[in-house]
């Protein structure tokens, strides 16, 4: 791919959600650039990434650690495993700049996580900053804003 179309960007977002729901985490890791950042702010409309707390602000090493941890023999909070489910709205393509190689989407979605008898429903918006690497779209940055990011939560164990 040399110049992704709007549909390419939208398909990418849908495919990412499907990978997560299918538990294909190693494939999902391949969607990231090595300097990718996955951010879930704690405050509504949070601006500062570093000097106030976030729910998540992780580089590729940490994201990979999460995936490796899921597989661990002694990962007791994943015995039994959590399952997740994304219902995403058609993504808005907010930026499609082939010359700059910058692509931004915004996706509204509902997310369900379940383990044993518990089920959690969250509403969120995701902003993806995508780039082309060797002709493939990659995630350089993913920001997930929970609608109720400042609420008290129990465990949220999977990726939104």
């Amino acid at each position: 791919m040399s110049a992704p179309s709007k549909d390419d960007l939208i398909d990418f977002i849908y495919e990412e959600a499907r990978m997560l729901d299918d538990g294909r985490f190693d494939e999902w890791l391949d969607l990231w650039t090595p300097d990718g950042i996955y951010w879930m702010p704690l405050e509504y409309n949070q601006q500062d990434e570093n000097l106030v707390t976030s729910l998540l602000h992780e580089d590729f090493f940490m994201i990979k650690l999460r995936v490796e941890r899921f597989k661990g023999e002694r990962t007791f909070s994943q015995k039994p495993k959590t399952r997740c489910h994304h219902v995403i709205q058609r993504p808005f393509v907010d930026r499609l700049d082939v010359d700059a190689g910058e692509f931004v989407t915004r996706t509204a979605f509902h997310y369900v996580e379940t383990r044993l008898d518990d089920q959690t429903l969250l509403a969120a918006n995701a902003r993806h900053d995508l780039v082309l690497v060797d002709g493939k779209l990659k995630i350089k940055r993913k920001r997930v804003d929970l609608l109720n990011s400042d609420a008290a939560f129990g465990n949220i164990q999977m990726f939104l």
Binding site: M40, L42, N50, L51, V52, T53, S54, L55, L56, H57, L65, R66, R69, A152, F153, G154, N155, I156, Q157
Partner: peptide, 13 residues
């Protein structure tokens, strides 16, 4: 801030 989110968040391993 990093310590807090790595250890104490509902999203913390």
């Amino acid at each position: 801030a990093m310590y807090n989110r790595l250890i104490n968040a509902p999203t913390s391993m």
